[in-house]
Structures are given as structure tokens and as C-alpha cells.
Design a protein around this nucleic acid. Structure first.
Length: 273
DNA sequence: CCTCTATGGCGAA
DNA sequence: TCGCCCTAGAGGC
């Protein structure tokens, strides 16, 4: 589930549910037991996301740092016996938030939080983000744009779905080297990411399809996919492009499956990809 | 029952 | 580049 919009939603939900109250902190599965004991009964001050990182603040410089990785999840539910492997549980006697499968769950200090933020590129979901540093990295790089967008030190919070979709919407081939992008193209990518990801936070899913290509306006069946959103190319390899009818292609890029339309996103003659 | 895949990322070769 | 972390759901047998 986890691209940046999910983490911001989780941060907001933690704050809305628990902030300003003393909470129980436990580790039914045991891997976070020592830290949980230290935090148990303390007031939860609030939560914040940065890129795909989540920070839960307990004051006095103590924070829980969570990274969900590929398969991690944080589920809210009415308080009940934990089911399965719950590494971290926060509850207020009424509602519980259970963490499972996360890559990272550890107790950190305020300076450690600052270090993590410092190595992240600008996050399209943070109002204080300035995209200039991302542009500098991209315009001087030989690496493909589809790889650069997944590099959290270039842009943070973007994952495999937003990468595929923003490049489709901007009609840029994922293998195009960063240094061959024009400033206007990067500006368009950034602004599109800001809008798409804000919409993702609002809806809790990734929708990227323009009004003229929705199932209703095209008379096609709505797309059904695990991630629950309506998208142009992500995980649509072998199917027809909603815009031009060409067959969507896929190829591994930066260790992940990348998807694009070979007609809408042309390779240019000025480089060989 | 089994295998495969998944919106990530780290560290060892 | 590859294996690994770790969980859940889908699909095959």
C-alpha cells in the first residue's frame, strides 16, 4: 500500500485518533518490546510523514520511526485481541493501530529524525518542499528518469505507481536520461505529482485517469486492481492504452516493473535507450 | 496445500 | 545484480 500519500494519511489518522492522550504501546510479536515498554502510558504528541517515512512523536525527543517497506501495513480497528504478527500496537482503550510487516520500526531521537529528513529529496506532499534540488540532480544525471523518480534522495514519496502514471501523463518515456529532460518537462512532472498525490491523500487511492478516459466516458469496464485506483499504465502490460489503443509495455527498471505506452511515450532519436 | 506477486529498500557480492 | 526482510491475498493443484 505504501507510497507517500498513504504515509501522510496514516500520520493524519494517528494524530486525529491519539494525539494529546496517554496511550498504551505494546509489541505483541515482541520485536519492539523494549522500546514499547519505555513508551507505554506516555502521551502521544503527534505524527508526521516525510516521503515514505512515518514518525510518531512521544515528546522528550523520543520518536518511533516506521518504514512500511513493500509489504508493511498499519491498520486501525476497534480494540480487540491482536491477530497474527503485530510488531507494534498503539491503543487508547477504544481504538488500536497495529503495525505488521514493516521494514523499519525503531525508537529514535530528534537528531536522528533530522538526519533522515536531510537525506530525502523534496516531497511533493509537503508544502515546504522546493523542487530545485531534484531538478539539479535530474538535469545532470545519465540515469533514466524512471529510475530517478524512484530514488528517494531525488524526490521522496513517489513509488512505482506514481512513477508510471506521471510519466504517462507527461508523455515521457521512462528510459529517457535525466539530462535530456527539459526544465519545463520537469516542472510539469513536479506539478502533476503534487496534484496527483494530494488527490491520493484525499481519496485514499491512486487515480490518474483524465475525465475523457474514465470508464464512464469511454464506455469501458472499470478497472479492477489490488491497489483500487483507476490508472493508465500501471500493471496494465499487454492491455490497450486508454488514450491511443497501443499495447502497454513493461520492463524492469531500478528493480521494479515499469509500465509505459510505446506510442504515447516515445523514445527520441537524440538518444538510444 | 502450494507458489507467485506486491505501491520498498538495504547490504553483500 | 541479487538475496533478504516480512505479510497478505490471489490463484493453481
Amino acid at each position: 500500500m505504501p507510497e507517500g500519500h498513504v504515509l501522510l494519511r496514516l500520520a493524519n489518522e494517528i494524530t486525529a485518533t491519539f494525539a494529546g492522550q496517554p496511550v498504551r504501546v505494546s509489541s505483541p510479536q515482541g520485536k519492539f518490546a523494549t522500546a514499547a515498554q519505555l513508551l507505554d502510558g506516555r502521551e502521544l504528541v503527534g505524527a508526521e510523514s516525510a516521503g515514505k517515512h512515518l514518525f510518531i512523536n512521544f515528546g522528550r525527543g523520543d520518536l518511533i520511526h516506521i518504514h512500511l517497506g513493500l509489504i508493511g501495513r498499519l491498520d486501525f480497528a476497534p480494540l480487540a485481541e491482536p491477530i497474527g504478527q503485530v510488531r507494534l500496537r498503539i491503543d487508547n482503550g477504544v481504538t488500536s493501530a497495529d503495525l505488521r510487516g514493516a521494514t523499519t520500526c525503531r525508537l529514535i531521537t530528534e537528531p536522528e529524525r533530522a538526519e533522515i529528513l536531510a537525506r530525502l529529496g523534496p516531497d511533493p506532499l509537503r508544502v515546504d518542499s522546493v523542487p530545485d534540488s531534484a531538478w539539479t540532480r535530474i538535469r545532470t544525471s545519465n540515469r533514466p528518469i524512471g529510475e530517478l523518480l524512484m530514488d528517494q534522495s531525488v524526490v521522496s514519496g513517489v513509488g512505482n505507481v506514481y512513477r508510471a502514471e506521471v510519466l504517462f501523463r507527461q508523455r515521457i518515456h521512462p528510459l529517457r536520461p535525466g539530462k535530456l529532460l527539459r526544465r519545463k518537462q520537469f516542472q510539469a512532472i513536479w506539478e502533476d505529482l503534487v496534484g496527483l498525490m494530494q488527490e491520493g491523500v484525499r481519496l485514499g487511492r491512486i487515480d490518474t485517469v483524465l475525465p475523457e478516459h474514465t470508464p464512464e466516458s469511454m464506455g469501458r469496464d472499470p478497472r479492477v486492481d489490488d491497489h483500487g485506483g483507476e490508472v493508465y499504465v500501471y500493471r496494465r502490460a499487454g492491455l490497450e492504452c486508454f488514450r491511443c489503443g497501443s499495447i502497454v509495455k513493461t520492463e524492469n527498471l531500478a528493480g521494479r516493473n515499469s509500465f509505459w505506452c510505446p506510442n504515447c511515450q516515445r523514445k527520441r532519436s537524440s538518444w538510444q535507450g
